[in-house]
Amino acid sequence: MATGQTIGYLRVSTAGQNSARQLDGIALDQVFEDKCSGSTTDRPQLTAMLKHARSGDTVVVHEISRLARNTADLLDLVKRLTGKGVTVSFIKESMTFAAGKDNPMNTMLLTIIGAISAFELSMINERRAEGQAKARAEGKHMGRTAKLTADQIAAIKQRAVTESKTALADEYGVSRATLYSVLKT
């Protein structure tokens, strides 16, 4: 293994998810963690990790889909890191990529696994959209619960002509921005 730092990269899709299991038990010198979608490489901690990693370092990632959900981005990131002399190791897939040690079989497997990951994401999105469309067709409410009823909105519109907007917002328990939004409709 390389003689530099061992750098961990963690990613979960939402702030509510927990990344603790990803590199549990692995000794790391530095950890970079993003809590956002892997569908783009525009991630603050990914950018910081790419700048931080130096020749001789090893970047450890729990699984391929944590680094990228797009095959082209995945291959580009691995190439950028190995091009700097950084070793990239994926724990779950037991795959390692090092500068100057091209392994055509590993590259092919990385491409295939990356494509499967991208396909899986598109299938998840497709099923979610189908479920939402079905729920809407059945008349189910989607999104946040409305803060104000139709009767409250009508009363606010009528009273807003002569009363303070701030007082109305306080009385109905909404922000002034919500109140002004209601008045525009």
Rank of each mutant, 00 (worst) to 15 (best):
I91A: 13
R136H: 09
R66I: 01
S19M: 09
G100V: 00
E138T: 05
Q132W: 12
F90V: 04
K35D: 02
D76Y: 14
M142I: 15
I153N: 03
R69P: 15
S37G: 04
S19H: 12
V88F: 02
H52Q: 10
A118H: 10
D102C: 05
N125D: 14
L46C: 03
V174R: 04
I112Q: 07
S55C: 13
D57W: 01
L179Q: 01
P104W: 11
L109A: 04
N18M: 09
Y172D: 06
T41N: 12
R69E: 05
Q30R: 15
A137L: 10
A27W: 12
T178P: 01
A146L: 15
L183P: 00
H52I: 04
K184G: 00
S181W: 09
P104C: 10
A27R: 14
K35W: 05
M142S: 11
G16P: 12
T166Q: 13
H62L: 02
A48M: 04
I153H: 02
A169N: 04
K51S: 14
A99T: 10
K157A: 01
T3D: 08
P44L: 15
G114A: 02
M142F: 07
T3V: 11
G8A: 05
T58G: 02
L23F: 07
I91C: 10
K157H: 09
V182K: 06
R11E: 02
E93V: 03
Q30Y: 07
T71W: 01
L109S: 06
M108E: 08
N106I: 01
V59H: 01
A150E: 15
E126Y: 11
Q30D: 12
A135M: 08
A27V: 06
Y172P: 00
N125S: 12
I112Y: 00
A169S: 01
E138I: 02
E138H: 12
A150G: 06
D76F: 14
L121T: 13
V182N: 02
L23G: 06
L75M: 10
E33Y: 04
T41W: 09
N70L: 00
L74A: 05
P44S: 15
K51H: 14
A48W: 02
N103Y: 10
M105P: 05
G25P: 10
D102A: 13
V161F: 07
G143D: 07
G173D: 03
L10F: 02
D29S: 05
R127T: 08
E33F: 04
I124F: 14
G131F: 11
V31H: 06
S122N: 14
V161I: 13
A27G: 09
E93N: 10
R54L: 11
